[in-house]
């Protein structure tokens, strides 16, 4: 057994892996928040609740309809994304001309409703979700044992994050999106339906949360509280990365997950506060976040 600073490499790599997994979820969730923030200028407070719903949809598909993990990975984001579209059309659209704080308050109210309904129907304890048979077991890497499902989560989330980043930075649709963020009136004048684009952007951000939810279902238990447990940390991640920055949210998400994992090894008492401490330091040095362009 190799030891580093008196800590076995097994424990170190184990915590690093957990950190990486958490980081994958932070990254996917903060990416969704960043996409939504860029276009709608609101902090989507019900992002955690929608992540929870994504996981629950997967659970319902399996237990009520017998539809397995792989289809759920496709269907759940579509259903949850559609719910997002409805939320945008029904509520957020009417608040566009008001102070953006109203959007925050509205989504906070929605989060209370969604969480309350699920807690009433499913209780506060978690429901198990099996790892799909194709991904059970693990691989021995020599220095550590890597469960296949966890490897899959990291790979898929990286793929989703980088795919989103690529789509926004390098495709035609992405250029419309960035242009509409800069100057919606002008883009509208060029004949692009900005209103629909805003709605779909919101739906897409929500779908990202749902993907994270399905991925999370076999790792954490499916519980009505899973969203509110993670979302506050994700808010801090967003502040550190710089609100609205796409690449920033991905890098900070993974980075902070790892930082949290390392803290668990070296100074476990601080592991739940380390992200907030980093946030305070970042705010003192760069108030607009590591990748932000000014508040």
């Amino acid at each position: 057994m190799i030891e580093i600073f008196g800590i076995s490499s097994q424990a170190l790599f184990g915590q690093l892996l957990i950190g990486l997994i958490n980081g994958a979820f932070y990254a996917m969730l903060s990416l969704g928040l960043a996409v939504i923030f860029g276009m709608l200028n609101i902090i989507n407070f019900c992002h955690g609740a929608l992540y929870m719903i994504g996981a629950f949809v997967a659970w319902m598909l399996l237990n009520w309809l017998g539809i397995g993990y792989w289809w759920a990975l496709l269907i759940s984001p579509i259903i949850t994304g559609a719910l997002g579209v409805v939320i945008e059309r029904l509520f957020l659209q009417r608040l566009r001309d008001l102070d953006h704080l109203y959007g925050l308050l509205l989504t906070f109210g929605l989060a209370l409703i969604l969480e309350g309904v699920f807690r009433q129907n499913f209780g506060a304890s978690g429901l198990p979700y099996r790892i799909p048979p194709e991904l059970t077991g693990g691989t021995n890497l020599g220095f550590m044992f890597l469960p296949n499902y966890r490897a899959w989560v990291i790979v898929l989330s990286l793929f989703v994050c980088l795919g989103t980043w690529f789509a926004i930075e390098y495709t035609r649709l992405g250029s419309y999106l960035r242009a509409a963020t800069e100057n919606p009136a002008l883009v509208q004048a060029f004949g692009v339906n900005v209103s629909r684009m805003i709605t779909l952007t919101y739906g897409f951000g929500v779908a990202l949360a749902a993907i994270a939810g399905v991925l999370a279902a076999p790792i954490y238990q499916v519980s009505p509280l899973m969203g509110s447990n993670i979302i506050i940390v994700v808010f801090a991640v967003v502040v550190i990365g710089g609100m609205g920055s796409i690449l920033g949210s991905i890098v900070t998400g993974f980075g902070l997950g790892i930082a949290e994992g390392l803290t668990k090894v070296f100074y476990p008492e601080a592991s739940s506060t380390v992200i907030f401490v980093i946030m305070a330091i970042v705010l003192l040095i760069r108030p607009s976040g590591l990748f932000g362009k000014g508040a």
Partner: peptide
């Protein structure tokens, strides 16, 4: 909680 959320909205 749900009622509070509804009042909020």
């Amino acid at each position: 909680t749900v009622i509070q959320g509804v009042i909020f909205v």
